[in-house]
Design a protein around this nucleic acid. Sequence first.
DNA 1: TATTGTTATACTCTATAACTATA
DNA 2: TATAGTTATAGAGTATAACAATA
Lengths: 159, 159
Amino acid sequence: MGAELDRTVAAFRRLVTTLNRGKTHERLTEAAGVRLDRPDVQIIAYLLDAGEPRRVGMIAEALQVESPHVTRHVTRLEERGLVNRVRDPDDGRAWRIALTPEGAEAAVRCRQVTSDWFETALAEWSQEDREQLSRLMERLAGDVCTHLADRYLGARPKP
Amino acid sequence: MGAELDRTVAAFRRLVTTLNRGKTHERLTEAAGVRLDRPDVQIIAYLLDAGEPRRVGMIAEALQVESPHVTRHVTRLEERGLVNRVRDPDDGRAWRIALTPEGAEAAVRCRQVTSDWFETALAEWSQEDREQLSRLMERLAGDVCTHLADRYLGARPKP
DNA sequence: TATTGTTATACTCTATAACTATA
DNA sequence: TATAGTTATAGAGTATAACAATA
């Protein structure tokens, strides 16, 4: 499947390169009318998707970063009134991080901008192609992430 | 096209999150048997794709970073014998950065690892789905990058 | 004077280690 | 003693500004 695979990977790399640059994030936040750095946006977007408060450890795991990183950004987000920390009723060591109404609004606006970018890009596509893309992209994400996880576990088994 | 678009974006984000983490890069370089940081790999991979020496400015533009960033990594890659700097015959201010045989070999090995990851992930896919993915991903990369570029130029026209 | 690239510097993102408090 | 989170620190990644040399 050589050449075809190369083209897939190359196209994917192009997308990632563009979407990951600082300039792109600047434009995202400008369009969304928020002043947040990239980790901030990732955290509130995750909380919005989750639909309910989440613990620091869960956020870190979902974003695949270490917890001190989440702690720092949550602290700032709380100072700015975008999230609340509430003691976890089931475990006194833990906190639940909840979006405030302002935080949810900011998250919605950021997500909307990304959606708009994709929607504009896909505007000329046939309905069938859009459906195929959605199906294949989901399958790809699932399969790639699973295989990477397998190899990781295989290479360094937990004691 | 709401829900379907959301699923596409969410799947894409999942992929990017996983593939962008430091751990993933560690595994890439370990599997490839090289000791290079992420910008190093991006640069030699780009030179391999280009198939011929490229100027610092062109590398920076392609990777969408600023040139001092490229300069620093090229300097290190040259010290380690993976690239050469040769004066541009057409422009005495410029250099052409060329892969050495060792550099090309390292680039090939890195790219192979990524290809293997995708190939493993796609192993169970039908030939038709793989072809569709390749086609749609290329189109998506083209359209998203184009639209982002348009908006950028629209927002800040060159004087 | 404009452009190619470099040097110097600083900021953002993320990880590791050491610590506190609860379980 | 193990776990959830925090504080402190350090390293990777990247940008901006000031500069050199050539066009």
